[in-house]
């Protein structure tokens, strides 16, 4: 899941300042799951903006709200067609993908990011998410016992732990597990420590050139794509 986090209110208020009529747009998929941009957060944010507006006394935004199932596909944005006429900007509570799809769908409509797209991750416990994948395009989880050194090690190094590990934790924070200790324990459990003894050469950062694009095999076969 793509994990995002709401931006500080002050930043949002700065962004919306030039626009009178705003639509706060939630996303019913990842942003809902990570509690950053579901229907609940949309109305909470609008309410917070209204309190802030009342406090400052000199803002008069009109805030409306709507949540689509998924912002990252054009088709889901169709219900907005009749709404965009009445608004000056969309405050999107979705990941950067959703925001850009909105921008593509409504060329004349300013899109403001209400959240920061943080990482791809999984839930640890309720309300706590951890990064799990960096989308490096060169998955090596087979070598590391299913634990990603790129995301779980603060340095993303490939040949074992640095000397900063203490009590199984990372030098950066006592609350953060050392990814390499986790990998070691897991490989030891799997009886595959030889994988850790192997030398891993420097990463290939050019697995897919940026901006990355994937063209599915099916399209090539049917000749729909001229590559």
């Amino acid at each position: 899941m793509i994990v995002s986090e709401r931006k500080p209110l002050a930043e949002i208020r700065r962004m919306i300042a030039p626009y009178q009529r705003l639509l706060t747009l939630g996303c019913g998929t990842c942003a809902t799951v990570c509690g950053a941009g579901g229907e609940r957060e949309v109305s909470f944010l609008n309410s917070a903006l209204r309190v802030a507006q009342a406090k400052s006394g000199n803002e008069t935004h009109t805030l409306s709200e709507y949540t689509v199932k998924r912002q990252c596909d054009l088709e889901f944005l169709d219900p907005l067609v009749e709404k965009v006429g009445d608004i000056d900007a969309i405050l999107a509570l979705s990941c950067g993908i959703g925001m850009q799809v909105i921008a593509e769908r409504f060329p004349d409509m300013p899109v403001l990011p209400g959240v920061n797209t943080s990482f791809m991750g999984a839930v640890d416990e309720y309300g706590v998410w951890d990064e799990r994948c960096a989308a490096c395009g060169d998955c090596r989880l087979e070598e590391t016992g299913g634990i990603c050194p790129i995301t779980r090690c603060t340095k993303g190094i490939l040949n074992g732990p640095c000397a900063g590990t203490k009590d199984g934790k990372c030098e950066v924070s006592k609350d953060m597990d050392c990814g390499w200790i986790l990998i070691y324990k897991r490989l030891e459990g799997l009886g595959q420590l030889e994988k850790m003894r192997r030398y891993y050469p420097p990463r290939n950062f050019r697995t897919i050139p940026r901006p990355k694009r994937i063209i599915s095999q099916a399209n090539i076969d049917t000749g729909e794509d001229n590559d």
């Binding site: 579901g38 229907e39 949540t67 199932k69 416990e125 309720y126």
Partner: peptide
């Protein structure tokens, strides 16, 4: 049901 994102918040709380 259509709104449910199966986020499992209910299950967790």
């Amino acid at each position: 049901q259509d709104k449910c994102a199966t986020c499992l918040a209910c299950l967790r709380v």
